[in-house]
Structures are given as structure tokens and as C-alpha cells.
Amino acid sequence: MRAGIVSYGAYIPRYRIKPEEIGKVWGEDGVARGKGLGIISKSVPSPDEDVITIAVEAARNALKRADIDPQDIGAIYSGSESHPYAVKPTSTVVAEAIMAAPDLTAADYEFACKAGTAALQNVLGLVESDMIKYGIAIGADTSQGAPGDPLEYSASAGGAAFLVGKEKVIARINGIYSYTTDTPDFWRREGQPYPSHGGRFTGEPAYFRHVMTAARKMMEKMGVGPEDYTHVVLHQPNGKFPRRAAKKLGFTDEQVETGLLTPRIGNTYSGAVPLGLSAVLDISKPGDRILAVSFGSGAGSDAFDIAVTDEMENFNRNAAPLISEMVENEVFIDYATYVKYRGKIRRKGD
């Protein structure tokens, strides 16, 4: 495939809440909950941040690192399960805010936590087929867990954008594989504010089956094994699942570590693999090989076999904030502030 990643950019809100702060309110041992999930804090969007602002900031950060005319962007696809509008796209706002409008196509995607990688696949397809010169794929979420639900310990906010093209590719796509079944492990019905989930059913039949199958088939297809990769980035609903899946697949902790952000920022849903991959690209060198596998409930996994090119030497990654800088820029808030920021307080007119 000649189409590849030309640039990338990310955005993580600065507010954080700790599991003990959440547990305190619900009469639970938050520290133990956090340990069980492998999470020490999660990101929280400010009242003036949502998927649209995160997507715009991520896309702008991607463009800061690339010397292209935004008018050459032919498609913008944004994947999220928390688009601010049920009807009216996130991607049109992004298009205007990066001055890519109006000569392009745009749409929003939803596939639980893998909407961002689905967007990336589609943009790659359009570029590869020469239907467009450049395209932007975004994965972003400001996901919500119902108050008192275990999801509240992990559901967080953030996102990343990938600029895809054929010139000055910093990360080549060696291959793509997707694995899809009808597995209702996690869902949210139309009009409902909070998602529902199958509890432990979200583990083996859902996350592990899809992520591991996709990873194995990807490696089979490429004729490679875990040892051929520098980094592996798996969907990370908590800090435990991706480590366990990677280990079973034969990866080492070192291969997992760079792309595993959930322990510090929580589960950013559609933003998770895009952010993990961004963290890896932040430090990667020409010749590095990356396996990225997303997971979306409902259910499916997209696997990407990625090779970092020599072009990475010329890439100005410092033109926009690195993932490590955004992870470190943290302000902790209490639960009361958290529920206000997340709009969980019922108010006059609600």
C-alpha cells in the first residue's frame, strides 16, 4: 500500500480524577478498584471541551507537523461514540476549523471504541485508490459511565488524528485485517444517556476473542511473529486487558509499554488506539514496526501492521505537543467538580 500516515496529532484534556475520589462517593474501595483496572487516574474534559473540540485540536496538531495545504484534504472522517450531536456531523466542524472546507467529503463514524480505526481504514482506501490526495481520520471520545457504574472508573476523554497521504509518509501501512461478529457485549440505545454492558461477558467472548484473533490473523497474513514488532498497541479499556492479551500473543511488556496510556488517562474509547499509536510514533525511529489492534464492542477489531519509514527523520514532531507532555499536564479535580463538568447534575430546564 502506498497510502500511509503523513502526520498525526493528538489532544488530551488536562483534568484528571482518581479512582479513590470516585470510590469515596459510592462507598467503594476506589484504590482497590483502580488496582483491579490498572488505572491510577483518568482524563476529564472541561465543560467547554467535547468530541468536536478534541477532534479539531487533534487535527490542527496533525497539520502543524505537516507542510500541506488544507485545501488538498479530500476527506475527513471522525469516529466517536460521544459525538456532541446525534444528528449533525463532528467532521464538518473539523473541516471548517482547519480550513479544508468546502471541496471535500466528510462523515462521522460510530463503532463503539473502534470508530477511529474504521475511519482510518476508509481514509487509507480513498487515498490508496487516488480518489483523494490527503485525508484525515480522527478517533475521539468523551465517554460517559453511569454514576456508580464500574465504567465510571475508566471512561475518559481524548483523541488523535491521522493525516493520510502518499507523499512524505512517516508510517507505511504494510497490511490491514479486520475481524467482525455480532457480539452484544456493550451498547447504548438511542436516547439513553449512559451505556449498558455485559459485565464479565465483555472479557473473553468480546475483547479477548476479537483482539487476539485479529492480531494473530494479521501476523499470519504478514508471515511474521510478535518478535518482529518494536511496539504493539492494543485497545485498552483498562490497564489489565491489553497486557494480558499481549502476553498471551507472545509480546513482551517492553513492546506494550509505550502505547499503553490507560493507566494514566483512562479509557478514551475511540481515542484509545489512535492515542496509543501516537505515543509510539512520538518516539519511534525509521525501521520500527508496529502492530495496532483496536476493539469496538458489538463487536470487531481492526489490525494494522505499520512500518516507520526513513521520512520520520525529517518529521517535525515537536511542532505540536507530544503525548507525554499532555499526559503529564494534569490537574486533579474532586467528584463534585467531575459530575458538574460531565453534566451529570440534573438542573433546571433539564
Binding site: 465543560p47 471541551e49 467535547d50 468536536i52 473540540t53 479539531v56 450531536y85 466542524v93 476549523a97 433539564d350
Partner: peptide
């Protein structure tokens, strides 16, 4: 930076 400025109520458009 790019932020939400206000919204036209819960059902209305969001101003960025």
C-alpha cells in the same frame, strides 16, 4: 485554542 463557547439550550446548536 478551539473550545465550546456556549449552547442554545440542551436541544439547540452548540457554538464553538
Amino acid at each position: 485554542t478551539f473550545r465550546k463557547l456556549a449552547e442554545d439550550g440542551k436541544e439547540g446548536v452548540i457554538f464553538y
